[in-house]
Design a protein around this nucleic acid. Structure first.
Length: 568
DNA sequence: GCCGTTTTCGGCCCGACTGTTTTCAGTCG
């Protein structure tokens, strides 16, 4: 684990312990903010001379961070953590249980962890506590069962189809004038906690009934006149919020978040003697809506440009002089990392080419696995030579697209490649990716990837960390060092659009773009439907503030080929 | 704990829903 990640986890833990202990809420929030800042930070915190220059990190936290970097421990941390039972932190993950209740469960019912919470429910101890009725205990029991069987957050590509399916059904309801998804899904986060749906309708009761009684609903968690929550059979929670048509824009802004972005907007409103909530922007003390029918109008009233949802994360978007024109799906003109039946793909070269033509691409790269990838039917040298011939022939015979002969060559743990240079030199495009030894040390990973970046024949580093979201951490290279080397050698770093990967991730993408290196957004398609994954890559790229000029997939045909040939 | 073009102290976003209690605390987003 990187120092940033370790420290972030410690600050999160401190915040939770403080919260259970009943500490000042603002102090709790300050610790959460430090944790979040550390999570977003791409540079190794240890390399930053004065961390108080980072917004949100003050003297106190800076001293703790410094001490941890220098000594490997943090004074006060162990004492704080040991002030509550270790297992109590897990109890905080139970839906419906917050710091006040968890503190009460501990002090008044002897609950110290999940098992003892279950015991306290079974032996009736919980019922003896004030404000702990049958219904509350039933809800806790159900939350415990849910927690035991489900991961906390779903991958973006899991949540999106569920949301779209619900939208399609709900917009059929009588009276619905506006319906969309908001929340972290609209912001395109790599994982989604729950799906937020926002609607305006003349017939709220009909919509709410349809929502709560849908065949995919497993449990109705809350049901009011304007707000309902359900859990669907696939395990995700969906919140529906019904608002007046006139306030849809304000509500969309509010429910898109992020929370941190909203807080700054509200503070900005207060500075202007106004009040912002989900119903609109109001002059102070007035019930008269300033202007709130669209998001654009609200931002404008706050003297701000409209900010794309993907960057509403309090990562500088509200102090930025000019919001760049972020990359869009229609800017993408080619896919430079795809597989065929030659290795582990399901499409022939011809099928791949036809799907690419359908998408309006001018170029498609055939990049099957290299020889070390036995389980993926990776190509030995002689098979690759024949494959190159087949690709060249297809390129001759198929009109309307350029088909590039390429490879996704393994980067060995020591940084060498899985084919000889002589063979690589025969190809049009070389994507080099790590597939093995994905738990090597950050130093080794950095050396390994930089060796590949510096290789004169390599065009793109594929899924640089090898992570699998919610499953595998992957490599933790020094991203700033990679970016610097990538810029120097004109090697692109990939944002693999597959929603299991999204590798590089959003903050890494931003480092690539700000560092002046090239970004490649590829689907790594193995099946025709994989081309649809591009949407997730685009969302992630936008979260990383990527513009078309950062991205080689946005180049016109001749410029792309010129860049490819510039490597020799 | 953090912050400051009202600066070193005083303030820090806002509202819906639930369950339990009868006027509201706690949780969630």
């Amino acid at each position: 684990m990187s120092t940033n990640t370790e420290l972030a986890a410690m600050f999160h833990t401190m915040a939770t312990v403080l919260e259970i202990s009943g500490a000042n809420g603002f102090k709790v929030n300050a610790n959460v903010k430090v944790a979040r800042t550390l999570e977003d930070l791409v540079e190794d915190i240890a390399t930053i001379e004065d961390v108080t220059t980072i917004q949100g990190i003050g003297k106190s936290s800076a001293a703790k961070i410094k001490e941890y970097i220098e000594t490997g421990s943090m004074s006060g941390y162990d004492e704080l953590i040991s002030s509550i039972p270790n297992g109590l932190l897990a109890v905080m993950n139970v839906q419906g249980l917050g710091p006040k209740t968890v503190g009460k469960l501990w002090k008044e019912a002897g609950v110290v962890d999940i098992p003892s919470l279950k015991e306290a429910i079974e032996d009736g101890r919980l019922e003896l506590l004030p404000r702990m009725g049958k219904k509350t205990i039933q809800n806790i029991t159900e939350s415990l069962a849910f927690l035991a069987t489900h991961a906390n957050r779903s991958r973006l590509g899991v949540a999106m189809p569920i949301a779209l399916a619900f939208l399609e059904k709900l917009q059929q309801c009588k009276g619905v004038s506006n319906i969309t998804y908001a929340g972290s899904l609209r912001r395109g986060k790599e994982t989604i906690g729950d799906i937020d749906i926002l609607a305006s309708t003349d017939e709220p009761a009909i919509l709410i009934k349809a929502f709560c009684e849908d065949k995919d609903v497993e449990k109705v968690l809350a049901k009011g006149e304007t707000k309902c929550s359900i859990r669907v059979k696939k395990g995700m929670q969906i919140d529906l919020r019904v608002v007046d048509r006139k306030t849809f824009g304000a509500a969309l802004l509010y429910f898109t978040g992020s929370k941190e972005h909203n807080i700054i907007l509200r503070e900005r409103a207060i500075d202007q003697d106004k009040k912002l909530n989900e119903y609109g922007l109001f002059e102070s003390g007035s019930e008269v809506n300033d202007s709130s029918s669209t998001e654009e109008e609200i931002y404008s009233s706050l003297s701000l440009p409209w900010i794309p949802p993907e960057i509403r994360e309090d990562r500088g978007e509200l102090s930025c002089k000019k919001i760049p024109r972020l990359v869009e799906i229609n800017d993408i003109r080619c896919d430079l990392h795809c597989h065929t039946t030659a290795s582990d793909g399901q499409m022939s070269i011809q099928e791949l080419a036809h799907h690419a033509i359908e998408r309006g691409f001018h170029t498609i790269a055939v990049t099957d696995h290299s020889q070390s990838q036995g389980q993926a039917n990776g190509l030995k040298a002689d098979r690759l030579r024949k494959h190159i011939d087949a690709i060249r022939e297809a390129n001759e015979n198929i009109e309307g697209i350029t088909i590039l002969a390429g490879t996704e060559v393994d980067i060995h743990p020591d940084g060498t490649l899985d084919y000889d240079d002589d063979l690589l030199a025969q190809l049009d495009i070389i994507v080099a990716s790590p597939h093995s030894a994905l738990n090597q040390s950050p130093d080794d990973a950095t050396k390994r990837l930089i060796a590949a970046i510096e290789h004169p024949l390599v065009h793109i580093i594929g899924h640089p960390t090898g992570r699998i979201i919610n499953k595998r951490k992957g490599l933790e290279p020094d991203i700033m060092a990679l970016v610097s080397a990538a810029k120097e050698h004109s090697t692109a770093l990939e944002l693999n659009a597959n929603y299991y990967r999204l590798d590089l991730k959003d903050t890494h993408v931003r480092a690539v773009c700000e560092g002046g290196a090239l970004l490649a957004i590829n689907t790594d398609a193995h099946r025709p439907e994989d081309f649809n994954q591009l949407q997730y890559g685009i969302l992630t790229a936008r979260r990383g503030w990527a513009t078309p000029s950062n991205c080689i997939n946005c180049l016109e045909h001749d410029k792309l080929l010129a860049w490819l040939r510039s490597k020799c």
